[in-house]
């Protein structure tokens, strides 16, 4: 095989992997604290992208637009918890999960009203040019996606390992009853988890928009992509989600270069099924440790 294809395969794999991981992390945080699958996670991604485009087109610098968009997405995460999940906290986790679907439909409808059906795009952040490397090409936005994803992941590990709030969140994830006993407010921690997940979704949306474009309807597909990453790697651990994302990204890249085109998407999904059959809780799945 041509060297340029191998190189391109690697670049694409890492890029897709980072996108998957960024989408999946939000599920991990909410699930580990509240045991609810937030099926509105993709809507935060959509909002992150849409709001960044909106502010950017109003003349706000790109990084500032991203920041404002991410903050709004985070606040909406809080709204989802306060307005929907918290009032239903005594219902089963299944019902709470479906309530997030309702929230997702609502956000999608409002987004259609505000922005219409058109797709929008952003230029590469700070106009980063494409890098040509031995026959392969790194699209200008790719380093941003990889870099920011790495930064977010490092930040998360620091937050969970070295801050009191992070440790409290981990305690809730490990053992909610125990956490309550030692005086941690599980409700407050759940709120933090939703805000954090909204923020992460917003960041993911803003950084992938230059690569993928954004419209009101991308939320649900993004939810599914994030779920895939979370399930392959194991939804109970951050490392699992990142590993899962990378595996999926690489699988999709392998598929695109080796499998007859037309079957690409299935290939990644078949990997997922294979992982399930051998390791039903995901690749990294020792429970109880975050």
């Amino acid at each position: 095989m041509d060297l340029s294809i191998v190189l391109q395969f690697f670049i694409s794999g890492v890029n897709l992997g980072c996108i998957y991981a960024a989408l999946g992390l939000g599920f991990f945080i909410i699930y580990s604290v509240t045991r609810v699958l937030n099926l509105a996670q993709g809507e935060f991604v959509m909002l992150g992208g849409m709001l960044t485009v909106t502010f950017y087109s109003m003349g706000v610098p790109i990084l500032l637009s991203t920041l404002v968009a991410v903050v709004i997405a985070g606040l909406l995460g809080g709204v989802l918890y306060r307005g929907v999940i918290h009032p239903a906290r005594n219902l089963s986790k299944a019902t709470q999960t479906f309530l997030t679907v309702g929230f997702a439909f609502a956000i999608e409808g409002i987004a259609l009203l505000i922005w219409g059906w058109e797709y929008r795009s952003l230029p590469n952040f700070l106009g980063t040019p494409n890098i040509h490397l031995g026959g392969a090409t790194i699209i200008g936005q790719t380093p941003w996606v990889t870099g920011i994803t790495l930064l977010v992941v490092t930040g998360l590990f620091f937050f969970f390992g070295h801050t009191i709030q992070g440790k409290a969140l981990r305690a809730c994830a490990d053992n909610p009853l125990g956490a309550k006993t030692i005086g941690i407010s599980v409700e407050r921690m759940s709120l933090y988890a939703f805000i954090l997940a909204g923020t992460l979704g917003g960041i993911a949306g803003a950084i992938i928009t230059p690569l993928t474009m954004v419209s009101y309807s991308i939320g649900f597909p993004m939810t599914i992509k994030g779920l895939l990453a979370a399930f392959v790697g194991g939804i109970t651990r951050a490392e699992g989600v990142i590993l899962g994302g990378m595996v999926l990204g690489m699988a999709e890249a392998i598929a695109a270069s080796l499998i007859p085109s037309g079957y690409h998407s299935i290939f990644a999904l078949i990997i997922l099924m294979a992982v399930f059959l051998c390791q039903p809780r995901g690749l990294l799945s020792s429970p109880g440790k975050t």
Binding site: Q8, L16, P221, A256, S261, G262, H264
Partner: peptide
Amino acid sequence: HFDPTATDLTLQMTDIKN
């Protein structure tokens, strides 16, 4: 081929370029 929701077509493009 590409999916209607595809975001990364660089691999197909590498083949086409070659």
